[in-house]
């Protein structure tokens, strides 16, 4: 905006030096060019010495991206529910873990992994619906009690799941067409005989990234381009007014809660297939989605995507380059965000 107004008062627009936006664009171009060079060029020895190896660096970036995809799937449901209902659902991690176990059972018994994915989503959507109708509707408008009840639910759910599935680590058997590694057109090293070594990357992880992008775009379209989306957005802004204009707010709440829980269940199956399923995962993913949503901004889908990207990359790069203190990095990012922009990167000030 400031650019446009300036060019009106000073038609030549020169002699004033370069604007901040131009500096930003040039800096972005330089960073982009350096990054592209790092991806495609063969690294000199001094760069290898700093960043271990090209393979390690690029794998960390790719893993950060795929982890971000997973975090986004979990956090998007969390942020949707918060945005509409002002309900911090601290049982969201339990929904993730339950989805993972349910999906495992379905995939294990039927032998079809995709059925597990669909089943994880549907079963958890129903669980979410039941939770909304039986628990949260009774406590409507009482934010603190709702939050406390979710803590209670998560504690009970964790013990029940431990009783049913035990403490063993489960691992999905993904179908053959998803397994194995693909060779990316990126040369990581050149052997002494001149042949090139390409970067190999697990295909399934790329699929996770793709699925997260597709779901993210679909959610954005749902919120911004459909009738129910406009109702949800109206509900975020003013619940009472939406209700007064004749919309069944309870129905909207139920749909959003079911969608949020279903997404957590879906993420459980997908995440359980990349990594593994074991007790304790519920707390881990609850913490991850809390950090993602705090950094990205409560109640915003785009914010969840940005937050997931930052946290996923920070976690993986930290793990490779300073493993002992890597865990701290995530929380440093959260603290800095809270200090500079308390409402989160994309959040609206409350």
């Amino acid at each position: 905006m400031s650019d446009a107004s300036r060019s009106r008062t000073d038609p030549l627009g020169q002699g004033q030096g370069i604007t901040r936006r131009q500096v930003g664009a040039v800096a972005l171009l330089i960073v982009g060019a350096v990054f592209l060079w790092m991806v495609f060029a063969q690294w000199p020895d001094w760069l290898d010495a700093i960043l271990i190896s090209k393979k390690a660096f690029l794998s960390a970036i790719l893993n950060g991206l795929t982890l971000a995809g997973l975090y986004f799937l979990v956090a998007s449901g969390f942020t949707l529910v918060f945005g509409l209902m002002r309900n911090v659902n601290l049982a969201h991690g339990s929904l993730y873990l339950l989805g993972a176990y349910v999906g495992y059972e379905i995939a294990d018994r039927t032998g079809y992994w995709l059925l597990g994915v669909v089943g994880g989503f549907l079963v958890l959507a129903v669980v979410g619906l039941v939770m909304q109708i039986l628990v949260f509707r009774r406590l409507e408008g009482d934010d603190l009690r709702q939050t406390l009840v979710t803590i209670g639910i998560s504690v009970v759910a964790a013990d029940l799941m431990l009783a049913v599935w035990g403490g063993t680590t489960y691992q999905y058997l993904t179908p053959d067409w998803l397994s194995g590694a693909v060779r990316l057109p990126i040369v990581t090293a050149v052997r002494s005989n001149g042949s090139e070594v390409f970067l190999a990357y697990p295909f399934y992880r790329l699929v996770v990234l793709g699925a997260a992008i597709v779901i993210g775009v679909a959610l954005w379209l749902l919120i911004n381009r459909t009738r129910i989306g406009s109702m949800i957005r109206a509900g975020v802004d003013d619940r009472a007014m939406l209700s007064a204009s004749g919309v069944n707010v309870h129905m909207i709440f139920a749909v959003v809660f079911a969608l949020g829980a279903g997404l957590a269940g879906l993420a459980g199956v997908i995440g359980g297939s990349v990594l593994s399923v074991s007790p304790g995962e519920d707390v881990r993913y609850l913490l991850a989605s809390l950090v993602v949503v705090i950094v990205g901004g409560m109640g915003s889908i785009v914010g969840a995507a940005i937050g997931a990207l930052i946290i996923g990359l920070a976690e993986q790069i930290g793990l490779v380059y300073f493993p002992t203190y890597g865990v701290v990095l995530t929380f440093v990012i959260m603290v800095v965000t809270l200090a500079i922009r308390p409402q989160g990167i994309m959040g609206r000030s409350l």
Binding site: N63, L319, P323
Partner: peptide, 8 residues
């Protein structure tokens, strides 16, 4: 997630 560790 050990994939980055494995790559290094």
């Amino acid at each position: 997630d050990y994939s980055s560790v494995i790559a290094a």
